[in-house]
Design a protein around this nucleic acid. Structure first.
Lengths: 219, 219
DNA sequence: CAGTGGTCTAGACCACGCA
DNA sequence: GCGTGGTCTAGACCACTGG
């Protein structure tokens, strides 16, 4: 194991086991370098990684300290529906319901099927100004999300997750009783501050959930 | 700006703007060092950061490449209810409903209030073996989650998010109609592989949602 | 002011994996 | 083989900030 990994593992272990508690002061980079018999640059790299991972706080002149606990963020797995459904051993299918152009916006709705069951209802708006190629696409055979992933460069996104009773229209499309609890995922996506797409997916609450992990460790 | 940040910004900008597309090859560390007039170690640090952020892939002998897009994870903000409610300008209150010890497990249920409205029903199990101090705590005035944050060292956690219609008991506790759509957050927490606590929180769907951000950039 | 982290250099050696 | 990234060294200077 590299010095880098060894130093990180040693400190992370002390924090996890409780030997080091939040607020405790760590040795200086100089001391750690001497202890481990390596150069300060190597210690610096390890400490930077621990800092980046949120395990420690660092202050010039004062030193490095074990960070306070903060269970307030987790890595959410945003599902790629085709992948998710096939991983479950079922057949994925996209059925387009509508496609309308309204000025600079393209509106597409459709259903994501897991086998013969409608799992999610999607309504999407695509900003034609940012993704002009979308105008030439029918989205008849390919889901807009899949198509967009392959056609637009990097983006940032904001997700909102809620629980809502299905409306009459939503219930009918999904083949469930009105007012059944559904998980709503709304996602807005940007490319360098230009809006790309906004999507609302209504999932059958009885068939779908989301999972998120919180790992305070640096991978 | 440091060389490190300058190099990262240059490459990230090219990726974001679309000048560099997924799969494109980046210059070698040697070339980048020459281009920017700095040492290879500095380039290496910048590239390692871009790799860690998921923007590039690196293969020995082959070189570095712009990574494929993958919108499949996001940072979920797991709410600290007291903070969240006070940020909304309301008064937060915890009301314990029950506390029972069952062998090595401590079971606590209660309500999280936003002003006079019950926002969430919580049922929690605490592993006494991992957190013995919990036996001396009534959880009458302080929510178990808040208490645990201050009393246990670092943990990992798994979250599951679902939409479910409220059961009769849940509906009564929350003051809503049975079968109303609710957001369920289940969280299990560990300390170094030892279970700490499992909690199930039932949120009123009409009053609560969760937000997550996806940022492909390094911070 | 003195000690800390933050950054950088100009080398070096190694492991990997493509040609 | 040989170019690539991965890691490391033994220095150095600077910026910040706490005592």
């Amino acid at each position: 194991m590299s010095f880098d990994a060894r130093i990180r593992a040693a400190i992370e272990g002390d924090i996890r086991s409780g030997a080091l508690r939040p607020g405790d002061k760590l040795p200086s980079e100089h001391e750690l370098a001497a202890q481990h018999g390596c150069a300060r640059a190597t210690v610096s790299k390890a400490m930077a990684a621990l800092h980046h991972a949120g395990l420690i706080e660092r202050r010039r002149k004062a030193g490095s300290f074990v960070a306070d606990q903060h269970v307030h963020s987790a890595v959410l797995e945003v599902p790629d529906l085709a992948q998710l459904i096939e991983a479950r051993g079922h057949v994925y299918r996209w059925q387009r319901l509508s496609r309308e152009q309204d000025g600079a916006e393209l509106h597409v709705t459709g259903l994501h099927y897991e086998g013969d069951t409608a799992l999610a209802l999607e309504s999407r708006t695509i900003a034609v100004a940012t993704v002009p190629d979308a105008m030439d696409e029918s989205f008849d055979a390919i889901a807009p999300g899949t198509w967009l992933l392959a056609h637009i460069p990097w983006t940032s996104a904001r997700h909102r997750i809620r629980a809502v009773g299905a409306s009459a229209e939503e219930a009918q499309a999904l083949g469930i009783v009105e007012n059944t609890a559904c998980l709503i995922l709304e996602r807005s996506t940007w490319r360098a501050d230009a809006p790309v797409t906004t999507v609302r997916q209504v999932f059958r609450g009885d068939l779908f959930d989301m999972v998120a992990h919180f790992e305070p460790s640096p991978r």
